[in-house]
Design a protein around this nucleic acid. Structure first.
Lengths: 189, 189
DNA sequence: GTCTATATAGGGATAGAC
DNA sequence: GTCTATCCCTATATAGAC
């Protein structure tokens, strides 16, 4: 009278693990189910047993990030001033990017992920809340550009293979430092 | 006794234009020759008449960026101090990202582009020269992270659809300002 | 120079054996 | 629960008609 649906619960995780690595290397569109199956030494059908479609796999890979992001947003949105909200959101994103370091590669900039996010309002809503906090009520041009740089810079650095030798703790520290340089500097011109 | 190989020379440009827009939206792997042909209202075979393979199209789209990059590198490498070289390279990249604003989307982070770059040493060499200038002789961790953020931030902002309403001149100005904030700030900790 | 037709391969996905 | 075999579609690429 044990296990009801999952085998040992491991097969699913193994698929996600393999998919994540392949997505990071080839992008979502550049990764086939055959490649995932081959890496696991199983057949495509075995993968399809765990997930009904490729989109299901992509969603399962990306979903934990959105979960954490919702947590960060809840904390940030409880802050009293726009500046405090933004600071909380940014440092939350830095922590999140480092924690999900390998997923960041997939998460950031992949057109297939963008499509998935835009097709599911529960995901899209998270992005919108984040954007609202980062930009604030009436963002000027400089602010908008800076936030765009910040967001892509954080996630790209976290995934950058060239930086793979840097441990999480140090990366987190340096990233926070960089973001604060951008945020705290007075507008120059 | 005019034109030797190109028809009016326009068909080729039209293919590249359509390919670029599709690459930017769907990524290279997410774009088929059929999609390119459909957008032009021609057949796949018509596209294949202009380019022998999909890689040829990708290369032709990306090649002008590398041409400009080589120019920037020649200028930067002629500078006398490492700091001056880096500054010249960064402002050159900013200008380049803005000038090739739509191509930046394709250029930055697409796994298919990465593969192409790594498979052609004439392209790969450009990246290596750029990295050498940006990082300098003995880069510490903070510098490496910052340069990674800078590079991805510049190109991502230039392509960000959310920032499409900002005109080139202003974007260029704001981007330069942001990069200098990162570069000129003293190391805090 | 552009099209139709087609070759060949690989993709996602399903049915059913075991 | 996992695999074999297969369907159907789309992809890249080519050959040859017009």
């Amino acid at each position: 009278m044990a296990k009801s649906v999952a085998p040992r619960g491991f097969a699913r995780e193994r698929v996600l693990e393999a998919a994540l690595n392949l997505f990071a290397e080839h992008g979502v569109n550049g990764t086939s189910l055959q490649m995932i199956a081959d890496r696991l030494g199983v057949s495509k059908a075995a993968v399809y047993y765990q997930f009904h479609s490729k989109d299901d796999i992509v969603f399962a890979v990306v979903e934990p990030i959105f979960g954490d992001m919702r947590r960060v947003l809840r904390i940030a949105e409880a802050m009293s001033s726009p500046d405090a909200r933004r600071e909380a959101a940014v440092s939350g994103m830095v922590e999140l990017a480092v924690r999900h370091r390998r997923v960041s590669a997939v998460f950031h900039g992949d057109p297939a992920i963008d499509n998935l996010v835009h097709s599911r309002k529960d995901l899209h809503e998270v992005i919108e809340r984040l954007t609202a906090i980062l930009l604030g009520p009436e963002p000027d041009t400089a602010c908008r550009v800076m936030m765009s740089m910040l967001a892509s810079g954080i996630f790209s650095s976290a995934m950058d293979p060239e930086l793979a030798d840097i441990d999480d703790e140090e990366l987190h520290r340096v990233l926070l430092d960089c973001t604060q340089r951008l945020l705290n500097a007075p507008v120059s011109s």
